[in-house]
Amino acid sequence: MRGSWVAAAGRAAGRRAGEGVAVLLVVSLLTFGLLSVAAGDAATAIVLARDGVVSAEAVARVRAELGLDLPAPVRYLHALEGLFRGELGASARTGQDVAGEVAARLGPTVTLATTGAVVAVVGGLTAGAVAALTRRRVVRLPIQLGSLALLSVPAFALAQLGVLLFALQWRLLPTQGIAGWPSLVLPAAVIGLPLAAVLAQVTEARLRSTLREPFATTARARGLSPARVLLATALPNAAAPLLVVIGDVVGTALAATLVAETAFGWPGLGDYLVRALQFRDWYPLQAAVLIIAVGTVSVRGLAGSLAALVDARAGVRT
């Protein structure tokens, strides 16, 4: 029996990987389907941008150039095949190869999302653990009110508030672009703080319910301090559900770059996606959507597998 939890966790991870691939295929199909419905606009938009006037022949020529005149299933298979070869098509707006543009923008986005996720996870876990451990209102109230406030303001307004205070009022941080770590502070905070608030609330609730379990009482009856019960018993036992939430939080941090990058002119994938969408530039759009979806789905899958591992060790059937 011992050691079989490794096999159980392996099976769970395999199942998750399969589900992840299926989800991504469906996402690619949906993205493709939606965009091919709207693709007529793209050709028109290109002609309009290039020639200044729209003529039926010019639009038809552009559609043929882009391969938009082929039947939709054929185009989807072409696109999927290209995807595996790393060929993501060309941007209608800039004429550049999408793969190259995306590669250049991946780095800044990963930096930003990772920093934001670290803020969220470290801040959220700490605040949640502190709130769970103490009964003193002086400590709990600021955490509860702070997280509530962060959840009530949209991220872009938070960004604007940050600019107002830290850039315009106190002149501490830059407002736009990418230039060393000071430019990272505001975008990462805009991504990380609301997610930290979510995580803090879940952490507090989870830890509190774990601390009410009989084994936590047994540990206290042995003379352990509440802090040690929290670290040695409650945190590991709350780990599985918390890991799932952390997976969600990190995945959402990746998607939150859409707003933060647009607000701060950060030259990453989120900014690229929003621009492509506004211009109906559909190869870049598809590439950006798929990359962000791959990122969020794999982060969640990884966290879910880790949670299954923890559960399997405790003998919980998954």
């Binding site: 992840g20 990746l254 939150a256 506004q278 789905v297």
Partner: peptide, 19 residues
């Protein structure tokens, strides 16, 4: 619902609203 939940709501909303 797995597909909908697996992809962040923001991404779904942005793409759909845009299209």
């Amino acid at each position: 619902s797995d597909v909908v939940v697996a992809v962040p709501a923001l991404l779904v909303g942005v793409v759909l609203a845009g299209v």
